[in-house]
Computed example of a mutant assay.
Amino acid sequence: MKLRAALIRSATITIPALLLVGCGTSGPGSATGLRSVVGTDLMGARGATPADQRKIDRTVVGICAAAVWTRAECVRHGEVVNG
């Protein structure tokens, strides 16, 4: 009977813990994969010049193409940029 109680107690602790482990967020699969989506255009861009804005736009295109942002967010960026 004590063994059964110990097994039940162990299961009531272990099973919820295992379920919670699966609920976390994970990072990108690899830095190379993330770099291919986001690119390197954004580095050094401040948005102060038309060239900077083009860098920002190229970065957004990659993020939208990879479906990181929703379609509505991508459309919103275009509306903000285009006025």
Rank of each mutant, 00 (worst) to 15 (best):
M1L: 06
M1I: 08
K2F: 03
L3W: 01
R4C: 01
R4K: 03
A5S: 08
A5H: 11
A6W: 06
L7N: 04
I8W: 04
I8T: 13
S10Q: 13
A11L: 12
A11K: 12
A11R: 07
T12F: 10
T12P: 04
T14C: 07
T14E: 00
T14S: 05
T14H: 05
I15G: 01
P16N: 02
A17P: 04
L19W: 10
L19H: 08
L19V: 08
L20D: 00
V21I: 04
V21R: 11
G22R: 04
G22T: 09
C23P: 02
C23K: 14
C23Q: 15
G24H: 10
T25L: 10
G27E: 13
P28Q: 09
G29W: 11
S30H: 10
S30V: 06
S30E: 03
S30Q: 04
A31Y: 10
T32H: 04
G33S: 14
R35N: 13
R35K: 09
S36P: 00
V37P: 00
V37S: 02
V38S: 01
V38W: 01
V38Q: 03
D41S: 15
D41P: 06
D41V: 07
D41A: 15
L42F: 11
G44L: 05
G44T: 07
A45L: 01
A45S: 08
A45Y: 02
R46T: 15
R46A: 14
R46L: 12
R46H: 13
R46N: 13
G47P: 08
G47S: 05
A48T: 15
A51M: 12
D52F: 05
D52W: 03
Q53K: 14
Q53D: 13
R54D: 15
R54T: 10
R54M: 11
K55T: 01
K55V: 01
I56P: 00
I56S: 06
D57E: 15
D57T: 11
D57S: 15
D57W: 07
D57A: 15
T59W: 09
T59R: 09
T59G: 11
V60R: 12
V61N: 12
V61C: 04
G62M: 07
G62K: 03
I63K: 05
C64E: 07
C64H: 03
A65R: 14
A65W: 07
A66D: 03
A67M: 11
A67C: 09
V68Q: 00
W69R: 08
W69H: 04
R71M: 05
R71P: 05
E73R: 07
E73A: 06
C74T: 00
V75D: 10
V75Y: 11
R76C: 00
R76I: 06
R76Q: 12
H77W: 15
H77I: 04
G78A: 11
G78D: 08
G78M: 02
G78V: 12
E79V: 13
E79K: 09
V80S: 01
V81M: 15
V81G: 01
N82R: 05
N82F: 09
G83F: 04
G83M: 02
G83R: 10
G83S: 08
G83E: 00
